[in-house]
Design a protein around this nucleic acid. Structure first.
Lengths: 209, 209
DNA sequence: TAGATTGTTAATCGATTAACAATC
DNA sequence: TAGATTGTTAATCGATTAACAATC
C-alpha cells in the first residue's frame, strides 16, 4: 500500500476495472484471480496486482479477489459513492443527448440543473432535469455546491465560461468543446472529450494498418 | 526519419498538434520553433522534435517549422486528405447530435448515410445525411466502400452489430457504446469514446485533489 | 498439507528529456 | 559570419513485466 503519486495511466485503468467487475458481478461471478481478470481485459496479471496495490490490499493469497468487494473498493476509490453534484451548461443536441441517455446516477453524480440561453428550452425539463436561463447561473451557484460542470457549449465561449465558473468556485469540468481549456487556479480539473482527436486517431490507424 | 513502430502515445498527440497548428495558421502565424510550440502546448521542445522525426524532416535549422507546411504534413499523416467514407448506425439523440454538429468533413470524412430501425427517423435527413432502414444496410455495404462505421446504438447489440459489419468488410469503428469491443479479424480498428470512463476519471480527480 | 495466488521487490522495457553536432 | 534551431544520439526517468517469498 503506497497511495502517493498515482500515475495517470493507473487512474485511467480504474474505470475499466470498475466496468469489468460490474459485468462480472451481474454475471454472478463471485471470485476472480488477477490472472483470469487479466485474460478477460488483455492486461497482465502483474499489472493488475501492481495497480490495485497502489490503493490497498484487496485480495487474499490462494483465493484471488472477491468480485463484489473489489468492485465496491474501486467504486469507492473512484468516488461513485460520493454523490457528486453536477450541472450542465449548454443544452443543444449533445447536451440533450447526455441528459437523456447518460447514466449519471450510476456514475455517482446527481444532475441538479441545466442552463441555456435559448428561450426554446428554458423552463423545460429533460429526463427530470430542469433547464434554467443562463441569467440565473450565478445565483444558482451562490446557493448550491456544484462539483462538476458539463460544458456542452460552443467552442468560442468555452474558455471565458470556464474562467467565470472557476471564479465562482467550480473546480471540475467535463469539457466537450474540443478546445484545450486551462486555468491558473490551483485544484481545477478538466476532463476533455475530444471527439475530433478521437476520430483523427482512427483515421490514422485505418490509413496506416 | 524512422517510420517503424510509432507508439500509441505519439499517435494520440498528432491530433493535438494538428489542432494547435490549425489555430496558429488561422491566427496568421507563419513560422514556429519547437520551443514556442512546446510552450503553447505544455510539451517539451525535445518531445515535439522527437515526435515529428518519426515521420520525416519538416523543419529547418535556425528557422523552425513553417506552420502551413507542418499542418499539411500532419494532416496528411492523419489521413485528413484521404476522404474516408463513413456511415452511422443508430440515430438516437447522440447520433443526431453528431450528425448535426460534428465537423466530419473538416476531419476528412464524408458521411454517406445513416441507419436506424425507428420508422420515425427512417427516410428523413439530418444535416444532409439520409437515414435508411437497417434492413437496407447489407445491400448498401455491398455497393459502397465504407471505411468507418459510427456505432451510436445500444450497448446490448454493440458486439453483434460490430461482428456483422466486420463480416461485411468494415475495418474501422468509432464506438460510442461504452463497451469494449473486440474482433479476432486482422486489421480491425476500434476507437472508443467511453463517456463513463471519462467522467469517472474526473470523479477520482476531484475526490483526490 | 499442497496448490494457488497474493503483494512487493527487482529487472526490463519503453518513453521522455537532455545534449550536441550539423546547418540554415 | 553569428545566432538560432533542427534532427538525432545518449541519458534519464517512469511504467510494465517478471520473479518470488509470504500465506491463505
Amino acid at each position: 500500500m503506497k497511495k502517493e503519486n498515482i500515475s495517470d495511466a493507473v487512474i485511467r485503468r480504474l474505470p475499466r476495472y470498475y466496468r469489468q467487475l460490474t459485468d462480472l458481478y451481474t454475471r454472478g461471478v463471485v471470485r476472480i484471480s488477477s490472472h483470469s481478470l487479466g485474460q478477460e481485459m488483455n492486461i497482465t496479471a502483474s499489472q493488475i496486482r501492481q495497480d490495485f496495490s497502489c490503493f490497498g490490499e484487496f485480495g487474499q493469497q490462494g483465493y484471488g479477489y472477491n468480485v463484489e468487494e473489489l468492485r465496491a473498493e474501486i467504486g469507492h476509490i473512484l468516488g461513485v459513492d460520493k454523490h457528486h453534484h453536477l450541472i450542465m451548461i449548454g443544452v443543444g443536441n449533445l447536451g440533450h443527448a447526455l441528459l437523456q441517455n447518460f447514466p449519471f446516477s450510476q456514475t455517482g453524480f446527481t444532475v441538479d440543473a441545466a442552463f441555456d440561453i435559448s428561450p426554446a428550452v428554458i423552463d423545460t425539463t429533460i429526463n427530470g432535469v430542469e433547464i434554467y436561463s443562463m441569467a440565473t447561473l450565478d445565483s444558482f451557484l451562490a446557493s448550491h455546491s456544484v462539483d462538476v460542470v458539463v460544458l456542452t457549449i460552443p467552442q468560442s465561449i468555452a474558455q471565458e465560461t470556464a474562467d467565470h465558473l472557476i471564479s465562482l468556485g467550480v473546480r471540475g469540468f467535463w469539457n466537450f468543446t474540443n478546445v484545450e481549456l486551462s486555468s491558473g487556479v490551483e485544484g481545477v480539473k478538466f476532463e476533455n472529450i475530444h471527439f475530433a482527436d478521437s476520430l483523427l486517431t482512427l483515421s490514422y490507424r485505418i490509413a496506416n494498418p
